[in-house]
Structure formats: structure tokens, C-alpha cells
Design a protein around this nucleic acid. Sequence first.
RNA 1: GCUCCCGUGGUGAAACGGAUAUCACAGCAGUCUUCGGAACUGUCGUUCCAGGUUCGAAUCCUGGCGGGAGCACCA
Length: 554
Amino acid sequence: MPDLLRGAIAAALGAAGISISPSDVPLEHPAELKNGDYSTSVALKYTKEAGMPPRTLAEKIVAALGTIGGVAKIEVAGAGFINFYLAPSALAEAVEKARADDKWGSGALNARKKIMVEYTDPNPFKEFHIGHLMSNAIGESIARLLQFSGAEVKRANYQGDVGPHVAKAIWGIEKLGLDASDSSALGKAYAAGSEAYESDATAKQEIDALNAKVYDRADAHVNEVYAAGRKASLAHFEELYKILGTKFDHYFFESETAPRGVALVQAHPKVFIQSDGAIVYRGEDDGLHTRVFLTSKGLPTYETKELGLAELKAETWDFDTSITITAHEQSDYFEVVLAAMKKVLPALAAKITHISHGMMRFADGKMSSRTGNVITGESLLLDLTDAARERAKESRADDVDALAQAVAVAAVKYQILKQASGKDIIFDRERALSLEGDSGPYLQYAHARAQQVVEKAKGQGVVAATDAKVEPNDLVRLLHRFPEAVEYAASHNEPHLLTNYLLAFASAFNSWYAQVHVLDGTSEAAHKVALADAVRQTLKNGLWVLGIPSPERM
RNA sequence: GCUCCCGUGGUGAAACGGAUAUCACAGCAGUCUUCGGAACUGUCGUUCCAGGUUCGAAUCCUGGCGGGAGCACCA
């Protein structure tokens, strides 16, 4: 429909002596439903070229448009907008499509593209913190947006299993006599090592020595502790991915990318130069800043490993695009790495893009979990699950724990995905734990209601059927916008654009549901059940794209 | 100091340069066991400041003020 309208409008404008291509026709969904299903501001834009007032030009365009199939009414409104109102039959068709096709709304925007999405990226031996949770929520949703719009997607997770943080954790394990195979002890060990590194010169030397041993793998005991800790950490992360609904296709580790990166750096002595004993890339030539690639001790930094990662990714899968999702604080770093990569791996550098998300900031200073520790992604999820369990006990769900978990995931992901991903999130415990209003559970609840009324209709033998003669309401008009809402979000790699739509849509459903009685025993029930069924499937699709589970009862 | 990002009701957010700036929370007033109240209805209240571009600016440009991030051997 959008393309059809753009073409017709461009042709009508041509009749008024102005020639533009259909793709340049501004066409939008009016924010207010009373202003129609589609609207264009061409008459306002080209009023000068046409040499007539906007409304006069708009009238001329409308006259030239004549009638369009599927459009019931075209009118000039406001300063010179042209509004299009779809015919009941066209909207009824959308309802039927939504019911019949569980892929309804999936498009061809990224058809046949091969895209690798790298996100989450926690570090073994460290805790799964809130930044990882944010990266996971955003990355998973972008991966699904891409999939839903036709792309072949591979999910990648890149983890720092070597480097100073590992040495700090191993030092802590040894000093505190902790068990490396206990994932919950690793966070404590890292904290101890990290603190000692700053305050104790002897400890600093010991940790630096350990770091070298982790890289050269020559010390049998260190290797043993390292292997146990790494294994425990990774197994624990898998439990979290399962709860969050992410299944990675590829895992990359810094222990693999480091040697590749070093080889790349050493092979290009003109690009990576000596400076104060270190090997650096001078980003100033590209308007950036200098960054160290090999330390004066000869060890690779994150920058060098990133080069090796790019090469390793490309060997693993022949992608068209590789997207990396990280926190905003790494944006400048990433630009320098990309600039360097353009010099040594130009073809590959052109395929790599970076999306950054904001930081989680705390509304009231340091945030603590219920155990008094600094809040992590994991503790947040646990706290939310506990809060949700209280509600779940009074629900109609068969499995209270499963529901509590599904609601907790919805609550936390929604918080992250409701706003533009580049912006910081002000974390408010009360708000994050809230299961009402502008929240993930609100969307789930609307879905569960629709699901249950459809099931009940089946039990009563009511056969759903859309009646094209019924005057379309706001709910139907919003439903019709779903495919374009997904495409809009996908084209910007912005899940929040879909979240905003789903909230408005779920809200319209709840209002409608409060006003009408679906199973009222009359002949109109069939039409209403059909609409509820379309809402059910559409919310389910939308929640899937956000990476949020949609329980049938709650 | 330099670079980048951001300033929208009491709070948190939305708005491809378009229509009366939208939504939620909190507040206030209601719906009172309904096909599911994790819901619905009503109400109160907002674009940091000063210029500029435009038929039209929260949005673009310039200059302030305020906040955040980054800027050499961490990731």
C-alpha cells in the first residue's frame, strides 16, 4: 500500500507540473488515528514550486488522484495535508492475514543478506554485569529484527578469556584459597585481585607475572586453575543465556584472536609503529587518537585482538555485514580500530559496523542488590524473578516459576528496549521492578488475555470470521500498521521503535476489550473473536522480535 | 584542554522538519469479582537559554549554560 500511494501521489504531482520520484514522496502514519491511515505533506513541501497555496495544491492533487483501490476516502486537512482512509475491506484483509500467517509482518528489507551480530560479550572470571544484560537485550532484538526482515543471521559472542582481569582473578583464587570451579567465587576473587593490583606493589608484580603465564601457558598449575575457572564461568553464562532466550551460533575467545592480531600487527610495521617502547597506531592522521596495540612488554591489547577477531569471524562465515554491539564508552576506541583495519584488512573493514548503547546509570548513587552487593545483571534478574513470583502465585499459570522467569525477562528487557539504544538508561529499582503500566508484563498480559478469549471461543464452538462490513475501529487500524512498524524498526536497527508501537497497540486492545463483550452470544461474536485472534498473533510476533516470551496464561 | 553524545510535565521516556508535543509512573477522581483488575475511564502538568534558517523547529545551524563518555600501554 505505501508504494502504491507514493506512486499515485508522484503521478498526481506530475499532473500539476512537478516531477518527483515516488521514493521522495513523504508518506507517514498520522500520529492521530482520526487523521487517517496514511498521510502526505507533499502539498506543503512543493507549494513554492507549484506557485499556489498548499491547500489549493492539495485539492489539485486529490482531484488528479481520482479513486484508489482499497482506499475509502481521501481528504485535504489542516494546513494542506492529504489524508488517506483505508476501506473496511482492506483492513479486514489485514486482520485475516495476521491470523493466518505467523510470519505476518516479516518483510524483504534484508532479504538474502548474511549478517553476523556480536553481542553480550561477558568476560570469563568476571561477573555478568548490567552492561552485558543491556548488550544482550539490544543485540538479541536487533538479530531478530534482521531475521524477521529476511536476513540470515548468525549470533556471535566474543569473550575475554585472557588478559589482566584473568590474572587478577587467578591471583585472588590463590590468595583467598577459593575453588576455581565455583563460578560464584570468581567474582570475589577478581574483586580482591583488582583491589590489590591498585594498592599493593608486590601484588601488582605477581599479577603481571601471572598475566604473562596465562598468555604463554607454560605453568602447569596456572593452566589448571585457569581451565577450571574458565569452564565454570562459561557454564554459568550458558544458564543465563537460556533464561534470556539467546542461542549463540559462534563463540570467539581472546585467546584465539590474540595470536592472529599480533601476527597482523607485526606484518605491517609501517602502519603500527614504535612509540615509547610500545607498538601503536597513530589515529591522528584520521582525526582520531593514538592507541596502543602491543604493550612495551610485547602483549597484545584489546585493539590487536579486535583485528584478529575480524579475521577469524570472516573465516568462520562469509558474511555481508558484521555488527558489533557494545557500550557507548567504546565508540572512540572502535573508530581507531576500524581506521587501522582499513589499512591492513580493507575489504573486511568495509563490512564491519558498530552499534553502541548507553550506560546504565543509577538514580540514587550505588545500587545494591538484596544481598547488599553491587547489583549485577544476574542479581537484577533474580530480584525481578522474586518480585514476579509473588504475582505468579495468584495467576492461572500451571508453572509458577516458569511464569515468574518469563515476566522478569519481559520486565528487564522492556526497560532496556523502550528507549533509543544510544541513550543512557537511568536505572530506577522501583520502576524496573514494576510489573504494571508501561512495561513488558503489560504487553504479555494483553497477549494472554487475547489468547484466553480465543481459546474460550473455541470451547464454545464460535468460529472466528472477519466481517468486512463492520466499521473498522482504532484497534484494527493500528493492527494494520504492524508490518510497517517492524520494517521501520529494522531499517534503523532500533528495537524501541517497535516497542513504542506494541505499547500503543496493546493499549488499544485493552481499551477495546474493556468496552466490548467478545463472546456475547450474538452473530457479531465471530467477527470479534477474529479480531482478538489477530491481536494475539500480532502481539506474539512483536514480542518475539523483542526477545520477550509470550506466556499463554499469567 | 580536545573529541563525541545528551538536555522534553514532579519522575522516566516518545515524536522520518509537519496537524492541538504523545505515553507511562507518581498525584487526584472514578469503574467494584469482568469473556482475566498485571486492566479500563477521567483529571492535573512539559520542549535549558539567546539568536538564525524555514510556509512550518523539540528536531537543522551558531553561541552560551548544564550533564555523561572517551582521550597510551585495561577491556
